[in-house]
């Protein structure tokens, strides 16, 4: 009887161990709670399209999210002088003798080792609009109008010799082919012995 009990006990322990293993590998939530989760917990509240639109400011490479309006190179240059020069320097170029707070924005379309700018390193023109509108100018983020952001995008693309276009809007910006686009590849590291 004692032997039987011992076997039974070992059996129980093994079930315990295997079921623990199953839970631990099946999900990172290791649980012994036997209550099933509901289809919905009912926490949180639904949002309206107006609430979504108030926060949804992202722009995709296909142009999804770009607002109406347009900007010009000449207006962009004027805004740059007024609101960007303080950090990014005259003409957006890093000068050897001047250390700017912000990175250089303008050079050309050829990538050199330590000279990453819009013209030679940015793969998508839509990123310019998205980033300038959400985060620039640094002391007053989110203060530029859509027209001003289009104008700055037009100026920076033009000054980097990416395009000769003098106007940018929701139709033109996604079509700008950035010189660095062809250089970008997805990560192919995957663990294991190979160093990549």
């Amino acid at each position: 009887m004692k032997q039987l009990a011992a076997i039974f006990l070992i059996g129980l322990m093994m079930i315990g161990i295997s079921s623990f293993k199953y839970r631990a590998t099946k999900s990172s939530v290791a649980t012994t709670d036997t209550n099933k989760w509901p289809a919905k917990f009912g926490f949180g509240h639904p949002v309206t399209q107006v609430e979504i639109d108030a926060w949804d400011i992202d722009i995709r490479p296909d142009g999804k999210g770009l607002p109406i309006g347009q900007g010009t190179v000449s207006k962009g240059r004027a805004i740059y002088v007024q609101k960007c020069v303080a950090c990014h320097g005259e003409g957006g170029k890093n000068q050897v003798e001047v250390k700017t707070i912000g990175p250089a924005l303008i050079s050309d379309t050829v990538l050199k080792a330590r000279n990453k700018t819009i013209g030679n390193y940015w793969p998508y023109a839509t990123t310019l609009f998205d980033y300038i509108r959400r985060a620039m100018p640094y002391p007053q983020p989110g203060s530029l109008t859509n027209t001003e952001v289009y104008s700055l995008s037009a100026y920076l693309l033009n000054a980097n010799h990416v395009t000769a276009d003098t106007i940018q809007n929701a139709k033109t910006l996604p079509k700008v082919v950035m010189p660095a686009r062809k250089l970008f590849v997805f990560d192919d590291r995957k663990g294991g012995p190979e160093i990549k």
């Binding site: 992202d58 722009i59 995709r60 490479p61 990453k116 819009i118 390193y121 940015w122 793969p123 998508y124 839509t126 990123t127 998205d130 980033y131 985060a135 970008f184």
Partner: peptide, 9 residues
């Protein structure tokens, strides 16, 4: 992907 500034430049 959105190709944001942080994941491209």
């Amino acid at each position: 992907p959105w190709m944001t500034r942080e994941e491209t430049s």
